[in-house]
């Protein structure tokens, strides 16, 4: 029973089982995303829940990140007299990495958890079974609108986060570090390339899909009452966060290495 080989074997089988289930689940979701009917009303409602109601937390995260980034870069760059690079590094750091990743993690904490809790409660109270008996496919009615909404909304959120983050850096740069208002903005715009922003928005769309997928997957397969729903919520946030960080590396590689 405590044979280490058996433990490794069980863990491996369990990992492959999970990967298989998740792949089938994602395949089912994608199939229902592209195949009509598409519930535009439900997508709109989810976009408001995911996007509009996440704005405060994403905005606050972005502004403080921009402020801290400006301070840290100033301290670091002053060691080799490169203080003038602060504005450029802040904007590149925010648009390429910190905007999408931190927004993704914050939205994962808010949205993946909410999705897992809602769908998990629907599962344990037989509401998902009821949906099926009413000739409605849960993947079409519950999963597809959430996945579409999250994938479309995250780039918008990240775009707003980029602007707020850069403004945070600007505030610290001009009010505390003594940069000239005009030259800070000029440095910000002059060295920013379209690909910096586009790569961040592509990341945001992928993160949106992943965080909704994790919320839906863990909620859909939750079992065992309140404890099961609690576990599903935790697992959704943890797995979404890990996947976002892993996907971030892969997309960065794809965009910025030859």
């Amino acid at each position: 029973m405590n044979n280490p080989l058996a433990l490794v074997g069980r863990a491996t089988l369990s990992l492959f089982g999970l990967a298989g289930r998740l792949t089938v689940f994602a395949g089912n979701c994608l199939q229902h995303i592209v195949r009509p009917p598409i519930y535009f009303g439900l997508i709109g409602r989810q976009m408001i829940a995911i996007g509009y109601f996440s704005l405060p937390v994403v905005g606050l995260t972005a502004v403080f990140t921009g402020m801290v980034l400006a301070l840290q870069i100033y301290i670091g760059s002053s060691r080799f007299n490169a203080e003038s690079a602060v504005a450029t590094i802040v904007v590149i750091g925010i648009t390429r990495e910190l905007g999408p990743v931190l927004s993704g993690l914050m939205v994962a904490g808010r949205v993946s958890a909410a999705m897992a809790a809602e769908l998990g409660t629907m599962r344990v109270t037989e509401q998902i079974d009821a949906l099926t008996t009413l000739s409605t496919n849960p993947f079409k009615y519950l999963m597809a609108p959430r996945l579409i909404a999250a994938t479309l909304t995250m780039p918008l959120l990240v775009f707003v986060a980029d602007i707020i983050g850069v403004m945070g850096g600007y505030l610290v740069g001009t009010a505390k570090l003594g940069f000239n208002y005009g030259s800070y903005l000029k440095s910000t715009v002059d060295y920013l390339e379209p690909m910096d922003v586009i790569s961040g928005l592509v990341k945001a769309a992928v993160f949106g899909f992943l965080l909704a997928l994790m919320g839906c997957y863990h909620g859909y397969y939750s079992k065992g009452g309140a404890q099961g729903v609690g576990a599903a919520t935790t697992n959704a946030v943890v797995s979404a966060s890990v996947l976002i960080l892993a996907a971030n590396y892969l997309i960065t590689e794809l965009f910025f290495t030859s």
Binding site: M122, T125, E126, Q127, D129, A130, L131, T133, S135
Partner: peptide, 15 residues
């Protein structure tokens, strides 16, 4: 399934 109706034990109403 359109031939079926079902009353669930816990009602299973969509809240």
């Amino acid at each position: 399934l359109s031939k079926f109706g079902m009353l669930f034990q816990g009602s299973a109403l969509f809240d």
